[in-house]
Simulated scan of single mutants.
Amino acid sequence: MQWATPTARLLPRLLVGRTSGPVFLADRRAPTSGPRLPADGDIDPTTRRGRLSYPRAEYLFKTASATLDQHHQGWTLHQLRHSAAKRMIRDPNLTLADVQWVLGHAHITTTEIYANPAPDEVISHVLAHHERQRSGPPSLPAPPAPGYRPEVLAALFGTSQITGEA
């Protein structure tokens, strides 16, 4: 795996020397008694801080992303997962099976959902295609496959694919 972003490259430094306890910690110490007492594996042995919970991680992410969201509500971790999945699917260096493994999907058909382009992506690609067609040199039509007679093609399409005559 390639660690491309500065945040991702930070992970190995977080793990140096660690033999137990959670990697991502809450901003406060874990309770020492009561109904919310965490398991021993969920407490950092050095700082006694608890593992960062999913709701707390989502709150922090939503707060941090609120200014970027057009509705100013921030994004959920589930939305982040979907965004990552769509980006991985479009990476030519990753196979569909790679993405399936990363996402933990039991069936490849679940992962294939992310391969469907959004309408704005299709429109963008089609417009780019037409621009390339318009700006590039005109291309000659491909010759007909063996066995097609020019007079039949002329009758069907109005021009002969071989001679270009009307």
Rank of each mutant, 00 (worst) to 15 (best):
D40I: 10
H78S: 14
G34K: 07
R56H: 11
E121L: 05
D98Q: 00
H71C: 08
P117Y: 00
H107V: 12
E121T: 05
V102P: 03
H130P: 03
V126I: 14
Y54R: 14
P35K: 09
E121V: 01
R134G: 08
D42Q: 06
A30G: 03
A115R: 02
D120Y: 11
P22M: 06
G21Q: 08
P38M: 08
H107Q: 15
G104V: 08
I108Q: 00
A106D: 11
G21R: 09
S139G: 06
A66G: 07
T47C: 01
W101C: 14
H105M: 10
L37T: 04
S124D: 14
R28M: 08
S83Y: 01
A39T: 05
L140W: 14
E58L: 11
A66K: 09
L68C: 10
R87A: 12
T32V: 15
E131W: 07
P45E: 05
T46N: 12
S20L: 08
K62A: 14
H129M: 15
S124M: 12
L94K: 04
L127E: 07
P138S: 04
L60A: 10
A64D: 02
T95P: 10
G21E: 06
K86N: 09
N93V: 03
L103A: 10
V122R: 14
V99M: 11
F24N: 12
Q100W: 05
W75A: 09
D98C: 06
H129G: 05
K62C: 10
D40K: 13
R134E: 03
H125F: 11
H72R: 15
I43H: 08
S53I: 07
L103R: 03
L77F: 00
I123V: 15
R90C: 02
D42V: 11
K62I: 01
L37I: 02
L96H: 04
G21T: 00
A97I: 09
P92H: 01
T46C: 13
D40S: 13
V99Y: 01
Q100L: 08
D91G: 03
R51K: 15
Q79P: 07
A128D: 14
P117L: 00
W101K: 13
S135F: 04
I43T: 05
Y114R: 05
R36N: 11
H107S: 14
Y59V: 04
R51L: 09
S20T: 15
P119L: 12
A66F: 06
L103Q: 12
A84C: 13
A118S: 12
L60F: 10
L68H: 07
G41D: 08
N93R: 12
V122N: 13
L94H: 02
E121W: 13
E58W: 00
G50S: 10
A84G: 04
P45H: 06
N116P: 08
L60D: 05
S20F: 06
R90M: 07
R48M: 07
A85G: 09
A64F: 03
T111W: 01
T109H: 08
L140D: 15
H129E: 09
A118G: 03
V102F: 08
R56N: 01
R36T: 07
S83H: 13
S53V: 03
A85L: 04
L37F: 00
T63C: 04
R48G: 13
P35W: 08
